[in-house]
Design a protein around this nucleic acid. Structure first.
Length: 768
DNA sequence: CGGATCGAC
DNA sequence: CTATGTCGATCCG
């Protein structure tokens, strides 16, 4: 089966492998050729259910192709000509709207998880390794790739391909920490950058490059951190007496042009200047700088693509992988040249199936895709052929959509403490992330579900954003040991904080104000979290949303905690109210955990705010946070000093030693239906069994007792009505509709001023 | 509308 | 010894 997903892109990194010098046949690392790889995979797979299913799917694709070919036969010359005219008209329009003015960068960490593991365990460095489990691998290093071992391959098959393969279990917390370090660097180049999972991100560096042009050299000067540099690099530096450019690290090309090494001045200040690097002002130089800083900070390498849009940037970053970069200059011809002979399979969005379908039409490269545009418009859906057209013209999006969804799967979280500390950690990190993204106010609902046999942790995140944004994007999955797998996911929903009949408002009724403090106050209080400043903008922001930003008077303000309307004319009073509410509802455990309960559910939420308009404020925050955690931030010089009404009115808790901070947990309304949805439909049989044995969930608040029936009624968290459907999907849809109704009501009340929020996406997805 | 499929990570 | 994940978006009946 040559189109099995495990093999289909086997030759992707052929060039990269050569560059890495991995074709050297060191110590039994010959690797395998493609034919052998396929044969081994075939033998390991055949007979399995998975393989049968693959065969079936493949047949279906073949049938689809057949259908398509029949359709093609029926197309008359006239139809084709007509289509050609229509499509070409569109091509003209697209061509006119071509935007080459942005500089988009795609950063891609090289074999991320594997690289982290190799960094932290040098023994693994020279060996083929993969990260994951016997059932599923997340990634592999370049040694292992020579044997055909790659991401999304089951470990047991990988072992057959490469018997010496070392499989390292996922260490997700570690990757996240490293990813955070990288993101801190990226945020300096684009505060609104879009992370795609842990190891990839898009940046719009257009603004950065404009500013950078006027930057003095000292802002582009970096010191080689020899402590954090590999032994080899230290040697290079010591032996030569100056920095040996070619010998530097694994990143020779980082310095290949335009970059000067300050060894000329060694007469002035001998030692200190030897390890200095200055980057230029061009896009390439800026990206080299990014990659240099990433490597300095994390000892990991990244590849990058620079192009006028995201699609091109992504394909660019793939070109000189690993540890390389590539740029498509912002000229139409350069774009078309890049696209010309590019196999369509390299294009993000074109996978195995589309590739095969197009191949049946004789289309392999992007220029062939363009030549066949008229035919494609007749054979494929509108969405499909239009995206084909975009691809073949090298068009793509130039603005980065807001990062809004993170999904995590990781091992069991057994104890309540673990859950809490995880929540705190996630809150803190999310607060930072969102600050960097420039998002302002958000609200997170954590719901953990635990059962004795299967741990299912689901985190629902509601973000209350005061700014317009749309789609949710990107998900990252991490897989752990199969049977005790648990899942944690969060979903961010844009919503208006001051909604009078919002989702939250409805939930107010359900809110119980028993405020048992779960966390000893010092456990959070002693954390050096400096996000407080941005929190304080909350009232100000809320003010704006209610349409009163110009009047300086807050007539009606809906408290985000108690949802009561506050009429006050001064900010201080409102702040005081919010403080009281926050203090009153501070960190609370929603459910009494009983010794005997079979399921346990803990729910808490988190409120944070970040002002967006003033990017410097955000920067300052990041810098503060870095300082607080003992890391170094380099933006401090340009982060403060603008007296631009930085009214960081602090929202201070009434508890004397305890400031309300982003990352803090506060209580949230309990909700039965969300609980209900935690049971994955997929496992409904098993779950029903488990839950059948479960008498009930013990709870301190009465409103949400749990029915242990397989097909129990779902209660909509918005309208509180019972939904009879047994399908999660239709239930989710119902909730969506309810949410939107709520939103429409708000809009009606607020009038057109906030109409722009009407296109915000509201959806809630739970469980599954 | 909802299940199936695709592509991504 | 076994053993192939999971999401959102889109398609299509």
């Amino acid at each position: 089966m040559d189109n099995m997903k495990n093999v289909d892109n086997g030759s992707y990194n052929g060039g990269a492998l050569l560059r890495m010098g991995l074709n050297d046949n060191k110590a039994g690392m010959q690797g395998l050729d493609k034919e052998k790889i396929n044969k081994i995979i075939m033998e390991a797979s055949k007979g399995s259910k998975f393989y049968e299913n693959e065969l079936k799917k493949d047949q279906q694709v073949n049938q689809r192709i057949e259908k398509m070919m029949q359709l093609k036969e029926k197309i008359t010359q006239q139809q084709l000509l007509k289509a050609q005219l229509q499509v070409d008209k569109l091509v003209m329009e697209l061509e006119q709207s071509r935007n080459l003015s942005c500089t988009i960068v795609h950063i891609d960490m090289d074999a991320f998880y594997a690289a982290v593991e190799m960094r932290d365990n040098p023994e693994l460095k020279e060996r083929p390794i993969a990260v994951g489990s016997m059932s599923m691998l997340s990634t592999s290093n370049y040694h292992a790739r020579r044997f055909g071992v790659r991401a999304a391959m089951p470990g047991f098959i990988a072992k057959k391909l490469c018997p010496h393969l070392t499989i390292v279990p996922l260490n997700f917390e570690k990757y996240r920490k490293v990813s955070k370090e990288v993101k801190e660097i990226l945020a300096e180049y684009d505060p609104h950058f879009m992370p795609m999972g842990l190891d990839e991100a898009y940046l719009n560096v257009t603004e950065h490059l404009e500013e950078r042009l006027n930057w003095p050299e000292d802002k582009r000067r970096y010191f080689l951190n020899t402590e954090n540099t590999t032994e080899k690099n230290k040697e290079d530096i010591n032996i030569s007496g100056t920095l040996n450019i070619d010998g530097y690290s694994s990143s020779p090309e980082l310095f290949e042009d335009g970059t000067s090494v300050m060894d000329d001045h060694s007469g002035q200040r001998d030692q200190s200047l030897k390890n200095v690097v200055v980057f230029g002002t061009s896009a390439e130089e800026a990206v080299k700088e990014i990659r240099f800083r990433i490597e300095q900070k994390t000892q990991l390498t990244a590849s990058a693509g620079i192009a006028p849009n995201t699609m091109l940037a992504k394909m660019c970053s793939d070109r000189n992988k690993p540890n390389g970069q590539c740029r498509i200059s912002p000229e139409r011809q350069a774009v078309l040249d890049f696209i010309k002979d590019l196999p369509i399979r390299k294009v993000p969005g074109i996978g195995k199936v589309t590739e095969k379908m197009l191949k049946a039409l004789g289309i392999v490269t992007c220029s062939e895709l363009y030549q066949q545009r008229a035919l494609l418009s007749l054979l494929f859906s509108e969405a499909s052929w239009r995206s084909f057209l975009d691809i073949s013209l090298g068009l793509g999006s130039t603005h980065l959509e807001k990062y809004a969804l993170v999904l995590l799967t990781f091992s069991e979280i057994n104890t309540a403490e673990d859950q809490y500390s995880l929540c705190r950690e996630l809150c803190r990190e999310l607060a930072q992330d969102l600050q960097k993204e420039g998002l302002k106010v958000f609200f997170i609902l954590f719901t953990f579900k635990r059962t004795p046999l299967c741990t299912q942790n689901v985190v629902v995140v509601k973000r209350v954003s005061l700014q317009r944004h749309h789609s949710t994007k990107s998900a990252t999955n991490f897989h752990l040991d199969g049977h005790s797998k648990s899942q944690l996911s969060w979903k961010v929903l844009p919503e208006n904080i001051c909604a009078k009949h919002s989702f939250f408002d409805k939930k107010r009724a359900a809110r119980q104000l028993n405020c048992n403090n779960v966390f000893p106050s010092e456990s959070v209080g002693k954390q050096h979290f400096h996000g407080v400043k941005s929190s304080a903008n909350f009232v100000e922001e809320a003010n704006k949303v209610t349409g009163l930003q110009k009047s300086n008077v807050c007539e009606i303000f809906t408290c985000p905690v108690c949802f009561e309307e506050q009429s006050s004319s001064n900010l201080e009073e409102i702040n005081r109210h919010v403080d009281e509410c926050l203090a009153g509802s501070l960190v609370k455990e929603s459910v009494e955990i009983s010794k005997n309960d079979f399921s346990r559910e803990n729910t808490f939420s988190f409120l944070s705010h970040c002002k967006n308009e003033n990017i410097d404020d955000c920067k300052e925050n990041i810098t503060d946070q870095l300082a607080g955690t003992g890391q170094s931030g380099s933006t401090s010089e340009n982060s403060s000093g603008n007296g631009k009404d930085k009214k960081f009115t602090q929202i201070v808790s009434e508890k004397p030693h305890r400031e309300k901070q982003p990352g803090d947990l506060i209580d949230i309304p309990r909700n039965a239906s969300i609980k209900q949805c935690l049971f994955p439909k997929r496992n409904s049989q098993e779950n029903a069994e488990q839950f059948g044995r479960m008498d009930h969930t013990e709870e301190t608040s009465s409103s949400c007792s749990f029915e242990a029936k397989e097909d129990s009624v779902l209660v909509c968290p918005v309208c509180n009505s019972e939904q009879k459907t047994t399908s999660l999907m239709s239930f989710n849809r119902h909730v969506d509709v309810c949410l939107n109704k709520g939103l429409i009501q708000e809009l009606t009340e607020k009038g057109n001023r906030s109409a722009k929020t009407s296109d915000t996406e509201n959806s809630i997805r739970v469980g599954e």
